[in-house]
Amino acid sequence: MILVLVESEAGATSEVSLETLAFARALAAEGGGIAIRAVVIGDVADRDAMSAELGAHGVSEVHQAMGDAFAAFGGASWAAALQAVREATGSVVVVAAGSTRGNEVLAHLGARLDVPMAANVVSFSGLAPFVVSRQVVGGAALEEMRLDQRPAVLTVAGHSWTAARVETPTTPSWHEFTPEVGAADLVARVVSTGTKEADHSDSLKTARVVVGAGRGAGGPEGFAAVAELAELLHGSLGVSRVVTSLGWRPHHEQVGQTGSRISPELYIPCGISGAIQHWAGCASSKTILAINTDPDAPMMTKATYAVVGDMHEVVPAIIEELNRRRS
C-alpha cells in the first residue's frame, strides 16, 4: 500500500500533489496493483469536490486528520498524522510532493521512523530492490538511491511527472481521524501568517506569451523592460527562483519545479540560465526564445531560438522595433 500526503492550494488539491499521485500510480502498477491511500491534513474547503478529484487520480481511500493540532501548520504534527495512518494501514511506501511542506514533513517522518528519505525523486527503476533516481547538485546531476527499509519515504520533484486522470474513476472512501499528537510535536507551529500577496499565477499558467527574467535582471529595478515587453505581447511575466528568493519579485511569478508550470505558445527567458528546476516548469512551452549573454547557458542550447546579448540592451531594442512597426 502506498500512502500519499496530499496538499491543497487555494481550496483545491495542489497540482504537485496530483503529479505525485501519477508517480504513485506508476509505482502501484509496477507492484501489481497496490492500493493508493491519501492523507489530507486539517479542514478542506469542499470535501465532495476533493473526494471526486482524488478518486479521478487513483486514490481508493482518504484519511483526513482532524483536530486542534492541525489548526496551524507544523512539520512535526503533520508527520505525526502521517505516521498514525502508516501504522494503522501498514503502508510500504510514503510519498509526498517535493514542495517546501512535502520535503519538510517527510524528513520529519524519516527521522521519527529512523529510515532514510529520498528527496526530489524523478523516477524509479526497480521494486526489489527499490531504486529511485533523484535530483542532486541543484538538479545538475542525479543520484540513484536504494531504499531498503520500510516504509520507503520519498518526495517527488515538482513537475517531473504529469498529473493524469484514471480511465474509470471511483469514489474513495473517506475516513476522518483525530490522531494523538504529543506536546513536543506542537511546539514548532506557525504562530502567525502575514497577508498573502495577490496571486496572479493563474494568468501566468494560462498565458499565450510569457516573458521570463532571472538573475541577469541584476536587481529589483531590472524588470521594467521585460514587464513592458510582456504587456506589449499581452502576456505575463515569469521569473526564476533566484529572483523570488532575493525578494526582487513576488513568489507567484516563479516558474519551475517549486513555482508554476507554464505552457505558452512562446516563452522568452531573459537572463535565466535554464537550471533543470526551472526547465521543469517551462519545458512544455511551444517555442522558446532565449536571451542571454552566455551562449553556452543550458537555456540557450535547449531553446528553439536564441539571441546572445545583454537583456538590458536587447529587450528595449525589441520594444522599440515593435512600437516602430505598429505606428
Binding site: 528553439t304 539571441v307 536587447v314 531594442a317
Partner: peptide
C-alpha cells in the same frame, strides 16, 4: 542542441 541563433545584441531586434 537544435537552437537557431537570431543574432547578437540589440541588432537582433
Amino acid at each position: 542542441s537544435t537552437v537557431e541563433l537570431l543574432g547578437e545584441g540589440p541588432g537582433a531586434a
